[in-house]
């Protein structure tokens, strides 16, 4: 008479099934993690670029109007108490290039002139002020010394290469204005 022994332990077939199922589940997860890591490092470079450009723009905003030259600025600019970090900046294995385009531009302001010719006018007492009915426009268009430019448009640009995307060029831009409020 033949005896059947009770099954003990794990059969080879079970182990093979287990390994195959684990491997099949690990492959897509590993792929997703790879994509996630690449995405994270790409986001990190993006954030670094934003921080570099924002920092530079804020430095320009703190600068004296007259010290910020017009034109394309691609190399560090001395602004008296500090220097604008322009050009190539290396960070985390990536080289970021910072540049500025500074242009003076015409600005117009509408207002109603005060009738200073009236005898009742007292400069320190607004209750005596009479305004012209027709609005006027004050333009700072550089047409004469009194109307010299007062506004500089600052356009900042940061560029870098995404080496994981076949050296694809990326860029971010920001715009702000610097005004001449001190003479």
């Amino acid at each position: 008479m033949r005896h059947h022994h009770p099954a003990k332990g794990i059969t080879l077939l079970e182990i093979m099934f287990a390994v195959i199922i684990l491997a099949m589940s690990m492959i897509p997860i590993a792929g997703v993690m790879g994509v996630g890591l690449r995405g994270t490092s790409k986001d990190f470079r993006n954030l670094t670029a934003v921080q570099f450009l924002e920092g530079t723009m804020r430095q320009v905003l703190a600068a004296d109007y007259a010290r910020v030259p017009t034109g394309a600025l691609t190399t560090p600019v001395n602004l008296g108490t500090f220097s604008l970090p322009l050009g190539d900046i290396a960070s985390g294995g990536t080289t970021f290039n910072l540049s500025l385009q500074v242009t003076e531009e015409t600005v117009s302001m509408r207002y109603r002139p005060i009738r200073v010719d009236l005898g009742s006018f007292v400069a320190t007492n607004p209750s005596t002020w009479v305004f012209d009915g027709t609005p006027s426009t004050l333009a700072f268009d550089n047409s004469n010394t009194m109307q010299a430019y007062r506004v500089k448009r600052i356009q900042g640009l940061v560029t870098w290469s995404e080496y994981e995307l076949g050296a694809q060029k990326r860029e971010i831009r920001m715009t702000t204005f610097l005004t001449r409020v001190t003479e």
Binding site: E54, R58, L61, I154, G156, T176, F177, L178, T179, V181
Partner: peptide, 12 residues
């Protein structure tokens, strides 16, 4: 950055 610049406009 833009709002800071526009505030400069307003001061002007």
């Amino acid at each position: 950055v833009l709002a800071e610049g526009l505030t400069n406009y307003a001061v002007l």
